Simulated assay, not measured.
Amino acid sequence: MFTGIVETIGTVSSLIPQDDTTTGGGGTSLTISNAAPILTDVHLGDSISVNGTCLTVTAFDNDSFKVGVAPETLRRTNLGSLTVGSSVNLERAVAGHVRFGGHFVQGHVDTIATILSKTPDGNAVTFRFQPRDKDVLMYIVEKGYVTVDGASLTVVAVSDDWFEVMLVAYTQEKIVTAAKPVGGEVNIEVDMTGKYIEKQVKAYLGGARGFMLESLVEKIVERKLAQK
């Protein structure tokens, strides 16, 4: 579990494809340097969020750490587009004794989104994103939370095709997203609360109570017909 508060920005120093099925089968071994601020208490097997993707530490030293990235992760996130020298947002898994400054983030990327526009507003910048999987927009609400490349951000506008967040000057200095160009890609994780609510509502309206949903639809149709 993470908070969506980026602790530091690291740099990709090595990308090694893992073709042997015994060592990853098409995945990648990723080494990230300039990560000293988050390695003071690291252990093998710990989870670190890399651009919002929860990955497991397999080796580390005072300044860098290594993780394995599975083929499925490469397909579902923007980690597959990283190159040596790329900057990435980093956050350690949350500890039980720390203050919770962001929102609950799993590190499980729901989809990739494309930056449609960057609009300056004073010293802030409004970013408009278009998700590859439009279904995630049903979980994104104005003034709610969304995780962009691992950073917890507040939604300022949302439509059926895109959503927007605003980055204040301080945030622009602390996350990699601010430097990405129009057309660039970001990892998106929506607020898990909406998913749980949806599942519970479906369970309530479906199954043995399926007739309730049918009755509701019938009443809506009858009301619309009566208005004509």
Results as ranks from 00 to 15, higher is better:
residue 208 A to V: 10
residue 113 A to V: 02
residue 59 A to C: 07
residue 215 S to Q: 15
residue 29 S to G: 07
residue 54 C to V: 05
residue 146 V to S: 07
residue 169 A to V: 09
residue 26 G to R: 06
residue 75 R to T: 13
residue 2 F to C: 07
residue 37 P to G: 03
residue 201 V to W: 13
residue 46 D to A: 13
residue 80 G to N: 10
residue 39 L to T: 00
residue 28 T to P: 01
residue 127 F to R: 04
residue 99 R to C: 04
residue 151 A to T: 07
residue 135 D to R: 14
residue 10 G to L: 01
residue 58 T to W: 07
residue 33 S to E: 06
residue 111 T to L: 10
residue 181 P to E: 13
residue 184 G to W: 10
residue 64 S to D: 03
residue 103 H to C: 06
residue 189 E to N: 11
residue 99 R to P: 03
residue 35 A to E: 01
residue 152 S to K: 09
residue 132 R to Q: 15
residue 68 G to K: 09
residue 228 K to V: 06
residue 42 V to K: 01
residue 30 L to Y: 06
residue 162 W to H: 10
residue 68 G to S: 12
residue 154 T to L: 09
residue 45 G to W: 02
residue 91 E to V: 03
residue 152 S to N: 12
residue 97 H to E: 15
residue 68 G to C: 07
residue 212 M to A: 13
residue 185 E to N: 09
residue 126 T to E: 13
residue 64 S to E: 08
residue 104 F to I: 14
residue 110 D to S: 12
residue 23 T to H: 14
residue 88 V to K: 00
residue 147 T to E: 11
residue 161 D to K: 11
residue 170 Y to E: 15
residue 203 A to H: 08
residue 88 V to G: 01
residue 178 A to S: 14
residue 165 V to M: 12
residue 137 L to Y: 11
residue 193 T to M: 15
residue 141 V to E: 07
residue 49 S to P: 00
residue 198 E to G: 01
residue 71 P to Y: 12
residue 133 D to K: 13
residue 94 V to S: 08
residue 78 N to D: 12
residue 199 K to D: 12
residue 37 P to F: 05
residue 131 P to Y: 14
residue 147 T to S: 12
residue 96 G to E: 11
residue 193 T to A: 11
residue 112 I to K: 14
residue 200 Q to Y: 05
residue 177 T to L: 08
residue 141 V to I: 15
residue 18 Q to C: 11
residue 7 E to Y: 01
residue 210 G to D: 09
residue 21 T to F: 06
residue 117 S to P: 06
residue 202 K to G: 01
residue 147 T to R: 01
residue 33 S to H: 07
residue 80 G to R: 07
residue 78 N to Y: 07
residue 165 V to A: 07
residue 118 K to W: 08
residue 12 V to I: 12
residue 141 V to W: 09
residue 9 I to Y: 00
residue 60 F to K: 01
residue 218 E to I: 02
residue 30 L to E: 02
residue 210 G to N: 13
residue 160 D to M: 07
residue 101 G to Y: 11
residue 1 M to N: 03
residue 177 T to E: 02
residue 52 G to M: 10
residue 185 E to T: 05
residue 28 T to F: 12
residue 78 N to Q: 14
residue 193 T to P: 05
residue 138 M to K: 15
residue 31 T to M: 03
residue 129 F to M: 10
residue 61 D to A: 03
residue 164 E to N: 09
residue 27 G to A: 03
residue 137 L to T: 14
residue 105 V to H: 04
residue 69 V to F: 11
residue 42 V to T: 13
residue 202 K to V: 05
residue 72 E to T: 13
residue 48 I to Q: 02
residue 178 A to V: 02
residue 150 G to K: 00
residue 84 V to E: 14
residue 133 D to L: 13
residue 171 T to F: 04
residue 12 V to Y: 01
residue 157 A to S: 14
residue 228 K to W: 10
residue 60 F to I: 03
residue 205 L to S: 01
residue 21 T to G: 00
